[in-house]
Computed example of a mutant assay.
Amino acid sequence: MIKRLACASLLALVAACGSAPVGPGFYRVERGDTLSQIARSNRQSVQSIVRWNNLTNPDSIEVGQVLRVVPPPGAASTSGALRSNGGGGGSGGGSGGGNASASATPRPAPADSAPSAAPAPAISLIWPVDGTVIRRFDGNNSKGIDITAAPGTPVVAAATGTVVYAGNGLRGYGNLLILKHNGEYLTAYAHNRALMVKEGESVRRGEKIAEMGDTDTDRVMLHFELRYQGRSIDPSRALPPR
């Protein structure tokens, strides 16, 4: 029971990572918040906030998650465009038919209407294992990337950091390591057969921290996650291309 409570506390720490005040133009999600409430209180459209934060599921925001609520440099909110396109379309049903048709003509979309890529993470990682990627991040069913290789293949720290968890108390992850790199970024390494470091230890980028295995999974693989302020983000955006 004590081990489970400790693991639950760790998960809360991971989810709430980065609880310091956020800067102007950003908002930290609180319990009970919805995206529409956040958009309304900041006088933005839900579509704009989804685009600025590269959200894959607007109905799945997490407590502690930090959202941009003002346009990024060079972009504009679509809230004004939505209001301008939404009015005046129903008037002039008789002799004014030509004007009604003109008013219903879609106006040019604002410059930022195309989906914009999320900014690259402000952390540089190395590949934690030499293997083949068999599953990539999608933000919903996959919160990281899965890499397969031979049993016992060395797993290395993707960046310099401190071990904040080393154990097997989190169901579905097997033998798991979590490294904290600064106040905003964590990396997680799951399904190892052996852990080479302990909680509280400092590790260097490229240092061996584990050996690949198949604990709590049906094949030998490393499940690798990158978290920014408690939210899973695509680790491949911080990794060198292969």
Rank of each mutant, 00 (worst) to 15 (best):
I2V: 10
K3V: 12
R4P: 03
L5M: 11
S9W: 11
A12W: 14
A16F: 13
A16I: 11
P21L: 13
Y27A: 01
Y27I: 07
R28K: 10
V29Q: 02
G32N: 07
L35W: 13
Q37F: 10
R40I: 01
T56Y: 11
N57R: 14
S60T: 14
V63S: 06
V66P: 00
L67I: 08
L67T: 02
V70I: 06
P72S: 03
G74V: 05
A75N: 05
A76L: 12
S77E: 03
S77G: 12
T78R: 12
R83V: 15
N85W: 08
G87H: 02
G88K: 00
G88A: 08
G93D: 01
G94Y: 09
S95I: 12
G96C: 08
G97H: 06
A100T: 12
A102M: 13
S103V: 11
P106C: 02
P108T: 13
P108S: 14
P108I: 04
D112K: 04
S113T: 12
P115E: 10
S116H: 13
S116D: 12
A117V: 11
A117K: 09
A117L: 10
A118Y: 04
P119Y: 03
P121Y: 06
L125W: 07
W127F: 04
D130V: 09
D130F: 01
G131F: 01
G131T: 02
V133W: 08
I134W: 03
N140F: 13
N141M: 08
N141T: 12
K143N: 11
I145M: 11
T148K: 14
A150C: 01
A150I: 01
G152A: 06
V156Q: 07
A157Y: 15
A159N: 13
T160L: 03
G161C: 09
V163R: 07
A166L: 03
G167Q: 08
N168S: 15
L170N: 01
R171L: 10
Y173E: 02
G174M: 03
N175A: 04
N175L: 14
L176S: 03
L177C: 02
I178F: 13
L179Q: 06
K180F: 01
E184L: 09
Y185M: 07
L186V: 05
A188Q: 11
Y189W: 08
H191R: 04
N192W: 02
R193Y: 00
A194C: 03
L195R: 09
L195V: 02
K198S: 08
G200D: 06
E201D: 13
V203D: 03
R205Q: 15
E207K: 07
E207G: 01
E211R: 10
M212A: 08
M212L: 15
D214W: 01
D214V: 00
R219Q: 06
L222Y: 06
L222V: 02
H223Q: 05
R231S: 15
S236F: 04
R237Q: 14
L239S: 07
P241M: 00
